[in-house]
Structure formats: C-alpha cells, structure tokens
Simulated assay, not measured.
Amino acid sequence: MRRKLVVGNWKMHGSIAANRTLLEKVVAGVYTCYHADFAVCVPYPYIAQTQILLTGSNVCWGAQNLCSTRDGASTGAVSPAMLTDFGCTHAIIGHSERRNLFHETDDTAAARFNAAREAGLVPIFCMGESAEERESDWTEYIVGRQLDSILRRFGPQALSNAVLAYEPLWAIGSDKAATPEQAQEVHAFIRNRIARCDAKIAQEVRILYGGSVTPANAAQLFAMPDIDGGLIGRASLSAEEFVPICLAANDRCVRSNIHRFEGHDAPIAASA
C-alpha cells in the first residue's frame, strides 16, 4: 500500500519567529503519527532554521524550487547540492505559480526534475489545468502534456523515486477545491497514463492533490483510491489547520492497513 504523504508549501511566507512557533506546533501535533509521511517546503532563507527545528522529528523539509545546473555563473540560483547540504529531502518542481509568474516551461521543469533526482532529492512534480482549460475539456491534454515531459525525456523509471502532484489552477488559493470525485478522476488518468509505460511504477508512485485542501475536506480526498496525500499551501501556514490534515492522512493509512489485515479487497467508502 502506498503511504500517504502531506507536504506543506509555505510559498513566500514566513519569519524567524513565526516559523519557530509553527514548526514546534506541527512537530508536537504529529509526533505519534508514523503511518504517513510529512514534509514542509520552505523559502530558501529559512531552510537552515527549519533543519535545526525539524532534525530528529518525523517531519522532513525541502525547497520550493532549484536550479537544473550543479554550479556556475547563475546569479540568484540555488543548486540541488546546496539543498542537500542542509538536509533537504524534497523539492517542489513545476508549480503553476512558477510556470505562470516566472515563465517556466515543461522543458525547464523536466530538467529541474531530473537534477533533483540525480542529487538524491525527491522531486514533487506539479501538474494542473486552468479554469478555462477545464471548461474547454482540455484537462487530460494539459496534464498529459506536462507528465509526458518527464516520461518522454527520462522514461517511467524516473518516477520510481518521485512524487507527482495534481494541482488544478482554479482551486489553488481559492475556496473552491476539486471534489473528491473530480480529483480522483484526474489522479486515475495520471496513473493510467504511467501504466501504459510501466504498470509497476504506476502502482507505486505517489500522486498528491493540491488546491484548497482543508481539515474539512482532507479525509474525503485522501479516501480516494488514487489520491496519496496532499500538497498544502495556505493551510500549511497554520498548525491548527495543517496538523488535522496530517492526522487525516495518518488515520486513512491506519484504516487501510486494518482493512487489508481483515482480508477485504473492496475500497473503503469515502465517507468512512
């Protein structure tokens, strides 16, 4: 069974004082949760502080981007090795805000995905469609094209130590999350597309949902068979919201393990 994973994406938020308060509450809130995995991806200036505060806990840390080259004359860039120097385990790649605000492309995202993987980081590769693209029934075309930038260039094996994230642009930062059924439909599409290349990797790769995940909807989203956790933006800035989402992921893994132990093959209902 795939373990659930919950990743906080702080985006361009944080301060030394606020970070300490938030992370101490998160660590205290999830310290007995060992059935799911947790991480926070923080702005570059706070990675060292995050390392100090999270070392020895069951919460990993990472970055929100990286450069695809190892070193050189790239003013303002941060290499994968710089991140691993500070204990980072994850890096968000290809987030829609990077694509839209900083004009990153499928090709540059794929290059950074591979650079993260080669450095031993777990890339969290983001995909998603805009509201206009969904209304035009282009969701599968857009998400498939973004996924294919990895599959065609590096093959399905590149996903063996990676995480995918479906983040519909129309749900990010809004109060309009995809319904569990809408999210599941796209997650299943992603997994089936990978299965055309490698069925084993398709079953093993974790696919997160991101876009207005809250304590109120997390359990239902995580109950879907192809949703393996969440990439959490706004709610990750509050321990009072982020911890319950983490607990929902941990609880879903516990329920799934009990269900498997009892010998049931049918999926647990979303309302359970």
Rank of each mutant, 00 (worst) to 15 (best):
Asn65Cys: 07
Thr69Arg: 15
Ala110His: 04
Leu54Lys: 03
Ala109Leu: 02
His103Leu: 12
Ile93Gly: 04
Asn58Met: 11
Cys41Thr: 15
Tyr34Phe: 13
Trp138His: 14
Ser149Leu: 03
Trp61Arg: 12
Glu132Trp: 08
Cys88Glu: 04
Glu133Met: 06
Val78Cys: 00
Ala63Met: 05
Ser57Gly: 12
Ile92Trp: 04
Ala131Asp: 15
Asp148Arg: 15
Thr75Ser: 10
Arg152Ile: 09
Arg134Cys: 06
Thr75Gln: 10
Gly94Cys: 08
Ser57Ile: 13
Asn65Trp: 10
Phe113Met: 07
Pro43Tyr: 10
Thr89His: 04
Leu101Trp: 12
Ile47Thr: 05
Ala63Lys: 09
Ser57Pro: 06
Phe86Pro: 00
Ala109Ser: 15
Gly72Ser: 11
Gly144Asn: 10
Ile142Tyr: 06
Trp61Gly: 02
Phe125Cys: 07
Ser74Pro: 00
Thr139Lys: 10
Asp71Pro: 01
Ala110Tyr: 00
Thr50Arg: 06
Ala77Glu: 08
Pro123Tyr: 00
Arg98Gly: 00
Glu104Pro: 08
Glu135Gly: 02
Gly76Asn: 12
Asp148Pro: 02
Leu101Ser: 12
Pro43Arg: 13
Ala73Gln: 10
Phe102His: 15
Asp148Phe: 03
Arg98Ser: 10
Glu97Tyr: 05
Arg117Tyr: 11
Pro45Val: 03
Ala111Asn: 09
Gly76Lys: 12
Arg145Gly: 06
Gln64Ile: 02
Gly76Leu: 10
Ala63Asp: 00
Ser136Leu: 14
Ala36Pro: 11
Thr105Ser: 14
Val143Lys: 05
Ser149Ile: 04
Tyr141Val: 15
Ile52Val: 14
Gly120Val: 06
Glu118Gln: 15
Phe102Ser: 07
Ser57Tyr: 13
Ile52Asn: 03
Gly72Asn: 09
Cys126Pro: 10
Tyr141Met: 14
Val143Thr: 01
Leu121Arg: 12
Val78Asn: 00
Asn114Asp: 00
Glu118Ala: 11
Leu83Gly: 04
Asp148Gly: 01
Ser149Val: 00
Ser68Ile: 00
Thr50Asp: 04
Pro43Glu: 01
Glu132Cys: 07
Gly128Arg: 01
Gln146Tyr: 06
Glu140Leu: 12
Gln64Asn: 08
